[in-house]
Amino acid sequence: MLIAFAGLPGTGKTTVARALARRLAAMYLRVDTLEQAFLASGSSGADIGPAGYLAAYAVAADNLRLGLTVVADSVNALQITRSAWRNVAREAGVRIVEIELICSDATAHRQRVEGRGADIPGHTLPTWQSVLERQYDPWESQHLVVDTAKVSVEQAVETIVRGLSV
């Protein structure tokens, strides 16, 4: 199956997605890692556009066709990217579970964004202002919402695991 995460920066996507991938022994795929690799490869440093997402879709599809579960970690803020993840799953003949992480406590969310350090060499993290200004399309598909202001990482993973069996 394909488990596609979504949510604004600082909601805990990477932390929860990694923990879930470990729990399921799934393939973990992070768009930020791919994008940073493109930039480090000598790209101009300009906007790399959809390259990270396009690479992630291709790598996910390869692994889904091998019979692996894939946990995809990205902001996934636009309908077009969400639709593309659904297409990857459909073309691979697997189920998709879409998970949106939110942080309903604005103070905690801001502290997370402003207090974290980059875990990918050279990666520039977003500012709180850029998080507030980011385009984030409303959802049009069924998905599981987990509020990380109200649950621990372990509780979030348990909620998701229970949602996978539905």
Rank of each mutant, 00 (worst) to 15 (best):
A17D: 02
V75I: 15
A72M: 01
D147S: 13
Q135D: 15
A118D: 05
K150Y: 09
A21C: 08
E140C: 12
V31C: 04
L78A: 06
L39P: 11
I96T: 09
G49V: 03
L101M: 11
R22P: 06
A84S: 09
A118L: 01
G93A: 02
Q135I: 15
D47E: 07
A92L: 00
V71I: 11
A26C: 07
V131H: 00
I99V: 15
V166N: 13
V145K: 12
T148S: 14
V113M: 09
V151I: 15
R90H: 06
G45T: 06
V161C: 07
S74Q: 10
A21G: 07
G49A: 12
P121Y: 06
A84P: 03
E35M: 01
V151D: 07
Q79M: 12
W85T: 00
A156N: 03
A4G: 14
L64F: 01
T81K: 09
L34Q: 03
L132F: 08
E140F: 13
L66K: 15
A56T: 04
A21R: 00
A77Y: 04
T148F: 02
Q129G: 05
W128K: 04
G42L: 09
G115D: 13
V151A: 10
L64D: 01
A156W: 03
T124Y: 11
N63I: 01
A58H: 09
H109E: 04
V157Q: 11
Y136C: 05
Q155A: 08
V97P: 03
D119F: 02
S83P: 01
D62F: 05
G163S: 14
E140L: 15
P50C: 06
Q129N: 05
G93S: 00
G67L: 05
E154A: 15
A37E: 01
T148E: 09
A108E: 13
D47Q: 04
V16C: 05
S41P: 13
D137C: 10
L125E: 10
Q111P: 08
L68K: 02
Y136G: 00
Y57Q: 08
M1F: 02
D137L: 12
L29V: 08
A46K: 15
T69S: 01
W139Y: 13
L39R: 15
I3G: 07
L78E: 10
T11Q: 01
V157F: 11
L64S: 02
E35K: 09
D73F: 02
A84R: 10
V131P: 02
A108C: 12
F5N: 06
T69K: 01
I96Y: 03
T159Y: 07
N87M: 02
H123G: 09
K150N: 14
